[in-house]
């Protein structure tokens, strides 16, 4: 086995071993989404209710208020802010992987309701599957987005290195070409018909 061939084989394997948790999560979550039915809405349970006593800079947007509230509660991290609603409330969704939290803040009386989403395995998997991008100002969120890019790169590398390794094994060329052509033909059929 040549040095390049050995390097390709080892990289193929070590990449795969490192990314086992990612590929496992993507596979299981995709199956869950492929078989999901409509109407499974999130359920929330109350964690606590308190009065928020902090003050906001004048003209603070919901996003600024959301960040300040999360920091003061020790819950800072990737989140989305909505509102104000017609009754003036601001809703903050703190995107935690296992179970996200919803905070509803009423500026009129300072009431702050903190709720936790009741755990559902399918929602947890789907949330992890959809998590990506560099839009949040948090190092760990960026690190996750980078790991998603790494998984994408690895998938392309596995395809290329897999073809290399197949071509090196002469006895498998015939059946390999047949299965490759069958798959490609079926994929093309779907591409033009559905």
């Amino acid at each position: 086995m040549g040095m390049i061939s050995r390097l390709i084989r080892r990289t193929h394997m070590y990449f795969a071993l490192f990314l086992v948790p990612w590929m496992l999560m993507y596979a299981v979550s995709t199956m869950t989404m492929n078989h999901r039915s409509e109407g499974a809405a999130a359920r929330w349970e109350k964690e606590r209710e308190e009065t928020y006593t902090g003050t906001f800079p004048s003209g603070a947007t919901p996003r600024v208020m959301a960040r300040q509230i999360l920091i003061s509660l020790g819950m800072d991290g990737a989140h989305a802010a909505r509102g104000p609603s017609p009754d003036g409330k601001i809703t903050i969704f703190r995107n935690e992987p296992i179970a996200q939290r919803r905070l509803t803040f009423s500026p009129a009386d300072g009431k702050l309701l903190v709720e936790r989403e009741v755990f559902r395995a399918s929602a947890f998997l789907e949330r992890f599957h959809r998590r990506r991008g560099f839009e949040h100002p948090y190092a760990l969120a960026d690190a996750w987005a980078f790991s998603v890019d790494l998984a994408i790169f690895a998938m392309v590398f596995w395809v290329a290195s897999g073809l290399w390794m197949w071509w090196e094994m002469r006895p498998t060329r015939g059946w390999g070409a047949l299965t490759l052509a069958l798959g490609l033909g079926l994929f093309t059929l779907f591409l033009v018909t559905i």
Binding site: G133, I152, V159, T172
Partner: peptide, 23 residues
Amino acid sequence: LYLAMFLLSWFLMYAVSSVPFSH
């Protein structure tokens, strides 16, 4: 090996199509 050869088109599609989602 052969399962990978058969499903290569889908696997590559999922990889490449993840880029517009990630960025």
